[in-house]
Nucleic acid binder design. Structure first.
Length: 832
RNA sequence: GCCAGCGUGGCGGAAUUGGUAGACGCGUCAGACUCAAAAUCUGAUGGGGUUCGCUCCGUGUCGGUUCGAGUCCGACCGCUGGUACCA
């Protein structure tokens, strides 16, 4: 056990016992009672219901819906939700009609694995977990509209996930193809490249192997350019944008044709550096490249070539990319290509440093100006021709594109790289041997798994008609079996879907010709249901459409979407892809789904390591709620540090937040309705309003809270404060610690809940009257400070500085060269 | 390797456009209350020196620009995240 974890249980945090008498009842801060009371009040009165088509301006705040795992809520969930919880509560107070929904992304492997282990149907487990999660969310006091909850595993929901798939299929954006896939022998599941990073299965850590399979793909690459384009209007951190851009990975260049001399074939290559074409001294093709079989008759060392290809296929993706940094390859004896510009005959190699999956699977190798080609050329003693002057190609490849000048390149000589790229493209287009080309790193989205707990893909395979979509009126294609029967979920043999062994599911009739046919047995990946859930919140019960168009029109786009940094690429891009597609077919009214995207930082364990069960440093937020209260937890989790930065959890830090709440509680006894506050306090209050307001908008929740603390400390210095000042404080506090704010608001005699009470506004005239401290420096060092009125003239400030005794002391015997005056800030006297 | 972010007290972290470095919180120390402890309240708390007036040093390292640099520029070191023979 770690220090932090046990501290919560062992070091008893004594609640300050402190009584007042109000109607003879002793009152102390008792979060348990207060929180239960207000949660009941809010949730039973529908205080957080979003109203369709209200006249108020709408605000849609969205947090990533959770996977309802058996272990319940994690502190990470609390951090992820609390930001927009604050914003949503503030928006309601500002008069907005707020949609702040929650739901459950409940399909997925952990539930299914647990189901098989415990012999309980995943439906049952899911329902139980959702129940636990909902209860926990309410105990944190989150202001979600629980009437709009969605569950991706509900047939009423996945009917529409399947419907969207059918639309994609009809537009040829969903297709089946045989390819080598990453396969996890332990999970018996096909994995995407992202799920098998480092050659290990994302879920279980088993080594991934390559397997040939029929796989469903969604043609996301067709939307690559638009996904990139749409980022321009997304309000988000530069790094969030960058990560998406990198993931899409657009590169611009040319595709150029190299004729093969001995056979009636040619090799197309993609290059971003057409300017180096004269320097292409050999070619490299991927081991899987079709040329090998097409021109097999001409290859003299076919056995060696095939052996190399076989070896390459045996290597996992991991070995190919991570381990074998040394370049290997085999020359295709008997085949040569012609460099279309230099007219030279150049050798062709197969080598596994060229990937079939990127570009054309073939490259023109320019060893003088590409580090990889250089290494390969050195290993095999191939010629290196310098075509860009500026580096030292005896030592290394010269890859600079800014400084270099073209040489040894005929009509390109003397040009800069940029000019040469343009001119080469022009030339190859004229000659008909190439064209401008764009390539994307992003690949089509592998869209299937061989597991039970997912949306069945609504396709029927008919011997006569081929792949036939299930008619829309027959949706949803429901998962077979009852929630009593768990035999159905056991994985099939050889990585087949469990559904494949359920005859009643598989055997059907073709919707087109009526003959016997088989259902598709693969299910969709977990990303499916989460790619459109935010649309469903606008109209969760609709059985005629995924959501009513007018409701979508009212609520979209999502004004602010917060979630994990880890979802910025996959989930956000996938959902943007679906959204753009739905826009194209007229189902949704906006081109892009999200206006603004933020991402919270990780909460680390008290030891500073990533929280994990194996390290035993996991903090359970519900224990904190039980011990200190939900208000303390909410406050602490935001106060802990910069919202977007990772920060370790600290048990003593939690105590500090509780202490602050105790001080606010105590402040109620200083409230006197007849009292008038001094100006200094009012100025402080208005500074606090301004600061808290701005900080919330800028996700600087930690400094917002510190400003509230500063004000409370200041207010506690007074014997009495006015009722209005206290009310204002409570309204500022309300988004953060709503239970306490509501309770105190009631205790001082108010009957209206704070949910829709106006958020305080700043009295600017008071801020004008604030005094400022002017710093007096001599040669850049602080020597004195004076308090003056705001916005004094420069001359007056200079005068004040020169009259200061301290300034005189440090300038004595020196000549004053100049005086720098920064209004409201400082005066710097430069003397020598 | 490439891209992005970060580096500030014992700790979490604050510092508009370059303008009082260390807000706020934790911890620690001292005092008050108590028989005592806890809780609470008050005060101190970057380091060195000090005649207790002050003074010098200090934001990863080195250099630069500036009246003035945590902030800007250049070079480097370290950490975190993303990505990777991407042609």
């Amino acid at each position: 056990m770690n220090k932090g974890g046990t501290a919560a249980q062992s070091s008893l945090f004594e609640i300050r016992t402190f009584f007042i008498h109000k109607g003879g009842i002793p009152m102390k801060y008792n979060p348990k009672a207060i929180e239960a009371k207000w949660q009941k009040h809010w949730y039973e009165s529908g205080a957080f219901s979003a109203e369709d088509f209200s006249d108020k301006p709408k605000y849609y705040s969205l947090v990533e819906f959770p996977y309802p795992s058996g272990s319940g809520m994690h502190v990470g969930h609390i951090r992820a939700y609390t930001s927009l919880e604050i914003v949503s509560r503030k928006r309601r107070m500002e008069g907005y009609n707020v949609l702040f929904p929650i739901g459950f992304d409940a399909f997925g492997l952990p539930t299914e694995n647990y189901a098989m282990q415990q012999k309980i149907h995943p439906r049952k487990i899911t329902d139980e977990n959702i129940g636990i999660f909902t209860d926990q969310l309410k105990r944190a006091g989150f202001s979600f509209d629980f009437d709009r909850t969605v569950d991706t595993t509900d047939p009423g929901y996945y009917k529409w996930t399947q419907w969207i798939f059918l639309q994609l299929f009809k537009k040829d954006l969903a297709y089946r193809s045989k390819t080598h896939v990453n396969y996890c022998p332990s999970c018996k599941v096909v994995l995407s490249n992202e799920e098998s990073q480092g050659g290990k299965c994302d879920r279980c850590g088993e080594t991934v192997v390559q397997k040939e399979k029929d796989v469903w793909f969604l043609k996301i690459t067709e939307y690559a350019d638009r996904l990139l384009e749409g980022l321009k209007d997304l309000d988000t951190l530069p790094r969030i944008k960058r990560e998406q851009e990198n993931w899409i990975g657009k590169s611009v260049g040319a595709e150029i044709v190299f004729p093969v001399n001995e056979a009636d074939e040619s090799l197309n290559v993609f290059t971003t550096r057409p300017d180096t074409l004269f320097g292409a001294t050999f070619m490299v093709i991927a081991p899987e490249h079709p040329l090998i079989e097409k021109a097999a008759d001409h290859i003299k060392n076919l056995d060696a070539v095939r052996q190399y290809r076989k070896d390459a296929q045996l290597k996992s993706e991991f070995e190919r990319t991570e381990l074998s940094k040394d370049k290997t390859g085999v020359k295709l004896e008997g085949l040569t290509a012609k460099n279309p510009l230099s007219d030279e005959d150049i050798p062709i190699f197969i080598a596994d440093y060229v990937m079939m999956g990127y570009g054309t699977g073939a490259i023109m190798a320019v060893p003088a100006h590409d580090a990889r080609d250089y290494e390969f050329a050195k290993t095999y003693g191939l010629s290196v021709r310098e075509v860009i002057q500026g580096g030292d190609i005896e030592k290394e490849a010269y890859t600079d594109v800014e400084e270099g000048v073209l040489i040894n390149s005929g009509f390109l000589n003397g040009l800069s790289v940029a000019e040469a790229i343009e001119k080469t493209i022009e030339h190859v287009v004229e000659e008909g041997i190439g064209e401008k080309a764009v390539n994307f790193k992003m690949k089509d989205w592998a869209f299937n798994r061989q597991r039970y707990w997912g949306e069945p893909i609504p396709i029927v395979h008919c011997d006569a008609c081929g792949m036939v979509p299930v008619p829309e009126e027959d949706l949803p294609v429901e998962l077979p079996g009852t929630d009593q029967d768990i035999r159905n979920i056991e994985p099939g043999a050889e990585g087949e879907s469990p559904l494949a062994s359920i005859d009643a599911f598989v055997h059907t009739t073709c919707p087109k010709c009526g003959k016997a046919a088989r259902r598709e047995t693969d299910t969709m990946p977990q990303w499916a249901g989460s790619s459109w859930y935010f649309l469903r919140y606008t109209d969760p019960g609709n059985d005629e459409a995924l959501a009513d168009y007018e409701k979508l029109q009212y609520w979209l786009p999502v004004d602010w979407y917060n979630g994990g940094m880890e979802h910025v690429t996959r989930h956000v891009i996938y959902s943007r892809f679906w959204h753009q597609f739905l826009y194209d077919i007229g189902v949704v009214p906006t081109k892009e789904p999200y206006k603004k995207r933020t991402a919270q930082g990780l909460i680390l364990g008290p030891d500073g390591d990533k929280m994990s069960k194996s390290k035993g440093n996991v903090v359970n937020p519900m224990e904190t709620i039980d011990f200190y209260g939900a208000d303390t937890l909410r406050l602490y989790i935001l106060f802990i540090g910069d919202y977007e930065q990772p920060t370790p959890w600290s048990e003593t830090g939690v105590k500090g937040s509780r202490r602050f709440l105790e001080r606010v509680w105590k402040l109620q006894h200083n409230v006197d309705a007849a009292h008038e506050d001094d100006k200094a306090l009012l100025i402080e209050l208005n500074k606090t309003i301004k600061g808290v307001d701005e900080d919330i908008e800028n996700t600087k929740f930690n400094t917002a809270i510190s400003k509230l603390m500063t004000f409370v400390n200041e207010a506690l210095q007074r014997e009495k404060i006015s009722k209005t000042t206290f009310e204002t404080l409570l309204r500022l506090l309300n988004p953060f610690a709503p239970h306490m704010a509501e309770e105190l608001n009631e205790l001082i005699g108010n009957t209206q809940s704070l949910v829709h009470a106006p958020f305080p506004t700043v009295d600017e005239t008071l801020l004008e009257e604030e005094k400022v401290t002017i710093v007096l420096q001599v040669n850049g060092k602080v020597r004195d400070k004076v308090d003056t009125a705001k916005d004094q003239e420069k001359d007056a400030l200079e005068q004040i500085a020169l009259e200061s005794e301290r300034v005189k002391q440090f300038t004595e015997g020196k000549t004053i060269h100049k005086v720098i005056v920064v209004p409201n800030k400082l005066v710097n006297v430069v003397a020598k």
